[in-house]
Amino acid sequence: MHSKNIEILVGLFVVAGMAALLMLAMKVSNLGDFTEKAGYSVTAEFDNIGGLKVRSPVSMAGVRVGRVSEIALDRENYTARVTLNISSQYDQIPLDTSASIFTAGLLGEQYIGLEAGGDEEFLVAGGELELTQSAMVLEQLIGKFLFSKAEGE
């Protein structure tokens, strides 16, 4: 009778531990997130990616559709080659979609925003986004602004 209770309590303990791990996986972290499931990769080249990082979100019309999975420097023309992992449920993205690097809020993190084009054909795995717009770098913006001000006068 004694050992039976102990067995039940130990069982409950293990279940509680597993439930906690499950919660950490699904609710707290992004394991339950779609991006970790099978998706397809496309690449995009940017002149400057600013503060973009691996795992930064990729969104379309504000809806997150994927994540940045890899960032590398193109050795020939010194541009940044970014690989985006798009969730397989979004498989109807037009070929001439443009990608821009935006900043969420003034000091927030940077993400890639996709803007759909009008092409009849859709992006497939291994495809490339031709139209890109680099990140706005604050210092450059301020520099440009001051320069134009000075020219205007």
Partner: peptide, 15 residues
């Protein structure tokens, strides 16, 4: 076996 389970429970309940 126990400590990882306990640590997970600690974190989950903390959240």
């Amino acid at each position: 076996i126990s400590l990882p389970l306990l640590a997970a429970i600690f974190s989950a309940l903390g959240i």
